[in-house]
Design a protein around this nucleic acid. Structure first.
Length: 270
DNA sequence: ATGACAACCTGTGGGC
DNA sequence: TGCCCACAGGTTGTCA
């Protein structure tokens, strides 16, 4: 489900319900996530109080007074606010019960997500990440410099978390369409001016998606249970074979890149 | 360093 | 209706 806007939407949805609250109980029903949840996990976090929530890339960080809970939603994960009145369903792997009666419930059918308990400021999963796309550090100048030795396709380049974090398949497709750049063009063959356009639209598409609550695909809902509205703004993702909304004359091409679907317009993207 | 590819899982939708 | 296959929002690890 989640790309950066969905993770941010989740963070904003759950924060008001958990910040300032003490964790009084933790139930782990299935420890087999991307990395198994250690047996000490429950005792590590029970008794802790939630201080703040943060996001880095697609990781959600829940800071307690004694350390940080690091959550990744993988491909199919979600976190939502519920209560004991609502019985756990299939794939509800973790419940974190707070003093106010709220349960933060982690649901993940494919189990590509993860949960870690951090007591150090740095972590191997966070240390290698590139800049946040919405930060000032991320710019056309930065992209241009990083791309000079990259002969691979530009779409793969902007989806590389070492280059920039949080640009997943949906928004990579959308941003390249908005920038008029062919996704299969070699990264090192793109001008600085075009990278400036690309950096700009990446910021634009991600911040717009955050504003409207992310993209709802299948059953994605934010932490507050509300659906996102970005899906209706998608220009190319999921529209292979359909008419391009820009030129109205060409049907959108669909190819595979690194085993992911790429959709683009042969006329509008060069 | 870069890049190609398999791997981790379950659910769903299309085609027959 | 049922079966089989392809594909799905992500990331890591391995190998060339």
């Amino acid at each position: 489900m989640p790309e950066l806007p969905e993770v941010e939407t989740t963070r904003r949805g759950i924060a008001p319900h958990i910040v300032g609250q003490k964790i009084i109980d933790v139930t782990v029903r299935d420890r087999r996530l991307r990395w198994p949840i250690p047996s000490a996990f429950e005792q590590d976090i029970v008794g802790g109080t939630v201080a703040t929530t943060r996001r880095r890339a697609k990781y959600l960080l829940i800071d307690l007074d004694r350390g940080t809970l690091l959550v990744h939603l993988g491909m199919s994960g979600s976190l939502r606010i519920t209560s004991a009145a609502e019985a756990a369903r299939k794939h509800d792997h973790v419940d974190i019960t707070l003093e106010n009666g709220v349960i933060l419930r982690y649901h993940d059918p494919r189990r590509f997500g993860s949960m870690h308990w951090l007591t150090e400021a740095s972590h191997i999963l966070l240390d290698q990440l590139g800049p946040e796309p919405l930060s000032d550090e991320f710019s056309g100048h930065y992209l241009f410099r990083q791309s000079r030795r990259r002969t691979g396709a530009v779409k793969l380049f902007i989806m590389d978390a070492k280059v920039v974090v949080g640009v997943g398949n949906i928004y990579a497709n959308e941003a390249l369409f908005m920038a008029g750049i062919r996704p299969d063009r070699p990264a090192n063959k793109i001008s600085k001016a075009r990278y400036q356009k690309l950096a700009h639209v990446i910021k634009e598409v991600l911040s717009t998606a955050i504003e409207v609550g992310g993209t709802t695909l299948r059953d994605f809902v934010g932490g507050d249970g509300k659906a996102g509205y970005f899906a209706q703004s998608l220009q190319v993702y999921g529209r292979g074979g359909e008419l391009c909304r820009c030129c109205q004359s060409k049907r959108l091409a669909e190819i595979r890149q690194a085993n992911r679907t790429t959709v683009f317009c042969l006329k509008c993207q060069r």
